[in-house]
C-alpha cells in the first residue's frame, strides 16, 4: 500500500480550491489525475517528495468540460485526456490535440490524466504540448485574488518549471478559432506502441495557397529541454513554395536548431538524425 504521507483536501468549488491554495504553503500541491503526483511521490521525486498537502481538484465541475463559441474553444483544465479523445469538437477542430492525447500512456492513464496536468509539470516529453503550441494555446490562471491569461509558450519556463505561482491554479485552456484554413499532423515516436514515454514528438500546422506556405507553425517535444515552437524556422518557411527541396531544408534547419539548443548529448547520435528524418516525412505527408 502506498502511503502518501499527506493531507488530501477535496474542495467542491473553484472558490474553495483557490482559498485552500491561498491558505497553504510551498508544500501544497495540486492533485488532478494523479498520474504524475502519485508516481512522483512514490519514486521520491524532489518535485513531490516534500509536499504534505494535496488539493484534489477532481470534484470541481467549473474546470471540466469542453466548450466552443465563435472565437474560441475552451477546455477545462481538469478535463481528462480520455474525454478530449472522445470529444466531437476536438475531433473536428483540433485533430492534432486529439491525436496527441490519444497517444498518452494507456486507456487507464488517459481516463485519469488531465490536459493541464500534462503540461503543468513541464516535462520535456509531455505529448500534448507540441500540439497545443501549434494551436497558439492560451491558458487561464486564477488565484483567490487574481486572474490572468497567458500563452502556453510563455507559461512554460524551463524543464519542470512554469510561471505558475504557489497560490495559482490553471483553470482553462483556450484555443482561438483560426480565420485561415490550417491543416497539419502530429507525430510521436516511443519505444513501443502504448504506455511509452515519447522519444520525439512533432507537430506542424500549415496554411497553404496552392503550394505556397501562407503560414506555418512548428513545435517539438522530447528533443529539446522543453516542448517548444521554432519561430526562426517558421519565418524561413513562410511565403515559400512547398517543394521537396524546401522540406529537406526545413528538416535540416530543425536539426541545426535542436543541436544549437541541446548541444551533443548521449542521445543526440540517435535523436538528431531521427528528428530530421521524421520531420521531413511529416512535411512530405502534408505536401501530398
Amino acid at each position: 500500500m502506498i502511503d502518501l504521507k499527506c493531507e488530501v483536501l477535496t474542495p467542491n468549488s473553484l472558490a474553495e480550491a483557490l482559498q485552500y491554495l491561498a491558505n497553504n504553503n510551498e508544500y501544497t500541491k495540486i492533485l488532478a489525475g494523479g498520474t504524475d503526483v502519485i508516481v512522483g511521490k512514490t519514486q521520491g521525486s524532489k518535485r513531490f517528495i516534500d509536499s504534505n498537502v494535496l488539493v484534489d481538484i477532481n470534484r470541481i465541475s467549473e474546470i471540466r468540460g469542453i466548450e466552443e463559441n465563435d472565437c474560441s474553444i475552451s477546455i477545462g483544465a481538469a478535463t481528462t485526456l480520455g474525454e478530449i479523445c472522445n470529444n466531437k469538437i476536438v475531433g473536428e477542430k483540433l485533430p492534432l490535440l486529439k491525436k496527441a492525447a490519444s497517444m498518452v500512456g494507456s486507456q487507464q492513464i488517459r481516463n485519469r490524466a488531465t490536459i493541464a496536468g500534462n503540461f503543468v509539470n513541464n516535462a520535456p516529453c509531455a505529448d500534448t504540448v507540441p500540439a497545443l503550441l501549434v494551436y497558439d494555446t492560451s491558458i487561464e490562471i486564477k488565484s483567490h485574488n487574481s486572474e490572468r491569461i497567458i500563452s502556453l509558450q510563455e507559461f512554460l519556463k524551463g524543464p519542470y518549471q512554469t510561471q505558475l505561482q504557489k497560490e495559482e491554479l490553471v483553470t482553462r485552456i483556450i484555443i482561438s478559432q483560426k480565420e485561415q484554413n490550417y491543416f497539419g499532423e502530429f507525430y510521436k515516436l516511443g519505444r513501443r506502441r502504448a504506455v511509452a514515454i515519447s522519444r520525439l514528438t512533432l507537430a506542424v500546422l500549415i496554411a497553404l495557397k496552392e503550394k505556397q506556405i501562407l503560414d506555418i507553425k512548428i513545435a517539438s517535444g522530447a528533443v529539446t529541454p522543453i516542448g517548444t515552437r521554432f519561430p526562426k524556422l517558421e519565418e524561413f518557411a513562410k511565403g515559400k513554395i512547398m517543394t521537396d527541396v524546401l522540406c529537406k531544408n526545413i528538416a535540416k534547419k530543425m536539426g541545426e536548431e535542436v543541436l544549437g539548443v541541446t548541444g551533443l548529448r548521449w542521445s543526440s547520435a540517435y535523436k538528431l538524425p531521427v528528428v530530421q528524418q521524421m520531420f521531413y516525412q511529416l512535411l512530405k505527408g502534408i505536401e501530398r
Binding site: V245, K248, G255, E256, L264, S268, L272, P273, Q277
Partner: peptide, 17 residues
C-alpha cells in the same frame, strides 16, 4: 549510413516516404 561527425543530413540521406 548516418555519420555522427556530420550531424546535419545531406540531401541524399532523406528517405522517400
Amino acid at each position: 549510413g548516418y555519420i555522427f561527425d556530420q550531424p546535419i543530413f545531406k540531401d541524399e540521406q532523406f528517405i522517400q516516404p
